[in-house]
Design a protein around this nucleic acid. Structure first.
Lengths: 208, 208
DNA sequence: TTTAGTATGTGATAAATGTTACTATCATTT
DNA sequence: AAATGATAGTAACATTTATCACATACTAAA
């Protein structure tokens, strides 16, 4: 267990890693599973060791809106926030690639802030990075029309998966951007005509 | 100076307040002044003592999008984030009611995290509250059409100003929601017909 | 009081997005 | 091979939002 922590969180110091080993549990999730539900009480802070997790915001009608990816070496900022405030989750986390995560009981997450400098830095850094990421999300929906938002969405997937081949259906994209499948199909068709993508079933190939 | 700090930040402990007195400068701003510009380097953390400040996100074309208010007793989360990362500001801060703010040199903000428990708690709490507030902003634009966004906007102003009378022009609302004046005028007219508001020049009166 | 500037109301039209309906294609199961 | 279900293409239409044009009303300055 020590190595997988050290590898994914190289800035954690020795004592912190030992503390994690003693207190955290490792959990496995399969692609498709929902790790955190909106409204659910958060009892753990989640650190990702393996796989990919997508973070969504949901509304009352069950619509979901994709915000960002969680990857190995990262933590769920929201689980930290809700944690300390003893609030229910404001987001939904869905596993999209078989994942292994560390679950840290919430009280420890607070306690370690004072005890482990490297934990403190990690938490602060997590807040900062996610704050900035959410601000970019605000940009994309406040200032941009659906065509540009689609490009932003596709690029985010390209970066995270390090691949120009995006394996996803139009319907899924529509769900995550909170629009309709037809709109996505139309826009993608237009992008294809402009030579920006090649379209296949369940698969969008980005050109360049 | 001691009293005005103590009054606005009741959780700050004595030593911290003394440290602030020694190191911070107080600055006054008039309504209308821009306190922080997007792209500007941040050299201070801003704590609000008096007045009201609006925080906006801007795009490359100079459009601005209103996100939230800063009020006495609050700090600018973004100035904390950009601070430590030595980055330029991601937001624009405009004074809307004559303001008095404390400017804390950035290195101190970091140093005090270790020295003053009450500062640490304040910073973490600031991150958390703003994160949640920005998530709500995401909701309002990701899931809602302009009519509902307008209601959300008006209510936020009602709460912050503790008044059902909102002194603002349709044009300003349109700018802050990144839409056009005509759209706002029409939606307000509809709200008036539904008995939700009374409309006056530069003044919207919320009913109930 | 006249004038100029700002704010608001509103019609006409365009463009973007959402909805409904239907077809065709592809992949998997039977 | 046939049946089934999911995916994608697309036309037609409704609704929302954006843009242009102009009239009217109010306010403050000259």
């Amino acid at each position: 267990m020590k190595n997988i922590i050290k590898d994914n969180f190289p800035n954690f110091n020795q004592l912190l890693i030992e503390d994690i080993e003693k207190n955290a549990t490792i959990k496995d999730f399969n692609a498709g599973e929902v790790l955190i539900r909106s409204g659910q009480y958060i009892k753990n802070t989640v650190l990702v060791l393996k796989g990919k997790i997508k973070i969504y915001r949901e509304d009352d009608d069950g619509n979901e809106f994709f915000m960002y990816y969680l990857q190995p070496g990262q933590a769920c900022a929201i689980s930290m926030i809700c944690a300390t405030k003893n609030e229910t989750s404001a987001i939904m986390a869905k596993v999209v690639e078989d994942a292994e995560v560390l679950m840290l009981p919430l009280p420890l997450m607070e306690k370690w802030m004072a005890q482990h400098r490297s934990w403190y830095e990690f938490v602060i850094e997590t807040y900062r990075n996610r704050f900035e990421e959410v601000l970019e999300v605000v940009d994309s929906i406040a200032f941009k029309a659906m065509d540009e938002r689609l490009v932003y969405y596709l690029n985010k997937h390209k970066e995270v998966n390090k691949s120009k081949d995006i394996k996803i259906s139009h319907q899924e994209i529509a769900n995550e951007l909170n629009t309709s499948r037809e709109v996505i199909s139309r826009l993608l068709k237009k992008m294809e005509q402009q030579g920006l993508v090649n379209l296949h079933r369940n698969h969008i190939e980005l050109i360049k």
